Computed example of a mutant assay.
Amino acid sequence: MYDFSLLPEDSIVAICVALALFAFSFISFSIILLYSLIKTNIYTKQHKDKLKLVCDVAYFHERGKRDNQEDSIYISPMDKAEDNGVVVACSDGMGGLLNGEVVSKYVTDSLTENYPYKFDAQDDNAAVITDISNKVYEEYHLGAGATLVMVHVYDDYMNFYSLGDSNIILIRNNHATLLNYKQNYITLMIRKFAEGGIDTVDAYKDTRAKGLIDFVGNHNCHVLKTSKPLRLMENDILIISSDGVTDSIPLNRLVNHIHFDQNASGIARSLKYGVKTKRNPRQDNYSAIVIKMTRSFV
């Protein structure tokens, strides 16, 4: 213990003044910091609707039990996002046909060459995809093909384009929705069975069920597309993936593998881990691009 009574009186006064100044400075700093935090929070709440929605983007690209990686992905330049939006795509080479990896790579390379895309030109963008498909047809004459799912996000709206059975999934309010229907025989048969009053369960027993009725490589393919943009909301999650993801994690269980406070990278890691832990002996290649919509002052 120090005996301050031994200090000169002027030293004690100086120490007291210094302690008082320190206490005043600390209290003043705390008040200013608290005021700033309150003001920032109030401003954010008042102007939240005016803040821009931006895309937080991540991906994974994994080979399953196949000999080759037949999935290919595309992400547009993020430094061009403010002017042209964000365009992402996933193409999956068709199993059972040769050159699946060549075709899927050709698809994403062609999308890269045609960038940028006009957001409101859905018909023109679909025509680009049809042209790519026709060139694959001219080269392979139905001997090779691939699926394609492509999403274009601009501000808080999105358009999508789809061929085949890959996935465009929107997760909102803890619920996953498949935005594009699969262009395969089972979808066609279920529709016909339902119209004819036949039990649709029989459609799943058909050996052709997973066969595609349209794909990249088909002549004059029919590209599914949005007729008008879809509105996106804060914390919406988009998953653009090959069917290798949903073969192991069904649509209704996707949300069980996601923590909604995660960023896009965290969600991608969780989904990749979820597929791996299934240890599917016939695991297809599995790739996905994850987009999480967040608010930003920028």
Rank of each mutant, 00 (worst) to 15 (best):
19 L>M: 10
39 K>G: 00
96 G>N: 06
169 I>M: 03
75 I>E: 04
55 C>H: 02
222 H>L: 10
145 G>C: 08
105 K>T: 12
153 V>W: 04
1 M>R: 09
43 Y>E: 13
195 E>N: 13
151 V>A: 12
263 N>I: 09
35 Y>F: 15
110 S>D: 02
292 K>D: 01
108 T>E: 02
144 A>V: 09
252 N>S: 08
293 M>G: 07
94 M>P: 00
167 N>G: 04
62 E>G: 04
148 L>H: 04
208 R>D: 07
210 K>I: 01
81 A>S: 13
95 G>E: 08
206 D>M: 06
187 T>G: 07
137 Y>S: 05
184 N>G: 06
25 S>L: 10
91 S>I: 04
177 T>I: 12
58 A>E: 00
275 V>R: 09
72 S>Q: 06
277 T>L: 08
69 Q>A: 11
214 D>S: 12
17 V>E: 14
285 N>Y: 02
178 L>M: 11
286 Y>M: 01
25 S>A: 13
75 I>N: 00
132 I>C: 07
230 L>A: 05
274 G>I: 08
214 D>V: 01
62 E>C: 12
30 S>R: 15
267 I>N: 01
47 H>M: 11
282 R>D: 09
265 S>K: 14
101 E>F: 09
200 T>L: 03
114 N>Y: 07
53 L>F: 08
125 N>L: 06
226 T>Q: 02
262 Q>T: 00
28 S>Q: 15
24 F>P: 00
86 V>R: 03
268 A>R: 11
184 N>Q: 14
45 K>A: 12
1 M>S: 14
69 Q>W: 10
7 L>T: 10
53 L>N: 14
223 V>F: 01
86 V>L: 10
160 F>L: 12
259 H>G: 02
173 N>I: 03
204 Y>W: 07
138 E>S: 13
195 E>M: 11
120 D>N: 14
198 I>Q: 06
79 D>A: 07
97 L>M: 13
223 V>R: 04
163 L>P: 01
111 L>T: 07
286 Y>L: 01
289 I>E: 03
119 F>S: 01
121 A>R: 10
293 M>Y: 05
132 I>F: 04
117 Y>T: 08
53 L>H: 10
66 R>Y: 08
118 K>Q: 06
79 D>V: 05
294 T>K: 13
48 K>D: 11
86 V>P: 00
287 S>V: 04
38 I>P: 02
281 P>M: 02
57 V>Y: 08
208 R>I: 08
191 R>N: 11
222 H>D: 13
140 Y>P: 07
85 G>E: 06
288 A>S: 05
262 Q>N: 09
271 L>V: 09
15 I>R: 13
2 Y>A: 14
159 N>F: 02
231 R>S: 05
248 S>M: 11
67 D>S: 15
66 R>G: 12
62 E>L: 10
275 V>C: 05
199 D>W: 09
154 Y>Q: 09
67 D>E: 15
268 A>L: 08
17 V>D: 10
131 D>Y: 03
197 G>K: 09
185 Y>V: 15
36 S>D: 11
68 N>H: 14
9 E>Y: 11
192 K>E: 15
288 A>L: 01
160 F>D: 00
140 Y>C: 08
54 V>E: 12
142 L>V: 05
131 D>H: 09
115 Y>K: 08
264 A>C: 05
72 S>L: 03
106 Y>R: 11
68 N>Y: 13
102 V>R: 12
69 Q>V: 15
161 Y>S: 03
84 N>H: 14
105 K>I: 02
60 F>A: 05
1 M>T: 13
201 V>F: 05
